[in-house]
């Protein structure tokens, strides 16, 4: 206050933040916090399920067929796109 009395120009130079901008900033911060929570929450839930024996993980060897079929499925869909674009 003392500075403002001494130098009235200082008051005018303060950046004016509109209500809209303030609200948008808060929304972005809230969404950011929620998103961060979502990743950490998923990780925590996964670790808990793993600890409790509820999460059954297949070994890479058991998953080999699934991986092969998934690769083939992706390639097949790409081929389907190509076919549609040829028409």
């Amino acid at each position: 206050m003392a500075e403002e009395k001494q130098n009235p120009v200082a008051i005018q130079e303060r950046p004016q933040v509109s209500k809209g901008r303030l609200v948008r900033s808060w929304i972005w911060i809230w969404r950011a916090l929620m998103s961060k929570d979502r990743i950490l929450k998923d990780a925590a839930e996964f670790e808990k399920r793993l600890r409790d024996g509820e999460e059954k993980l297949a070994t890479p060897a058991e998953d080999a067929q699934w991986a092969k079929e998934t690769r083939e499925g992706l390639a097949a869909l790409s081929h389907k796109f190509e076919e549609r674009l040829k028409k």
């Binding site: 998953d63 869909l77 674009l85």
Partner: peptide
């Protein structure tokens, strides 16, 4: 390193692929 994919991870990959296939089937124009 052994890399293991959880059922949720695999399910999301499969579901997303199916979703794209459905969208392709529904697409009417080039």
């Amino acid at each position: 390193w052994e890399v293991i994919l959880s059922p949720a991870f695999k399910a999301k990959l499969a579901a997303t692929r199916t979703e794209f296939e459905n969208r392709l089937n529904q697409a009417r124009s080039r």
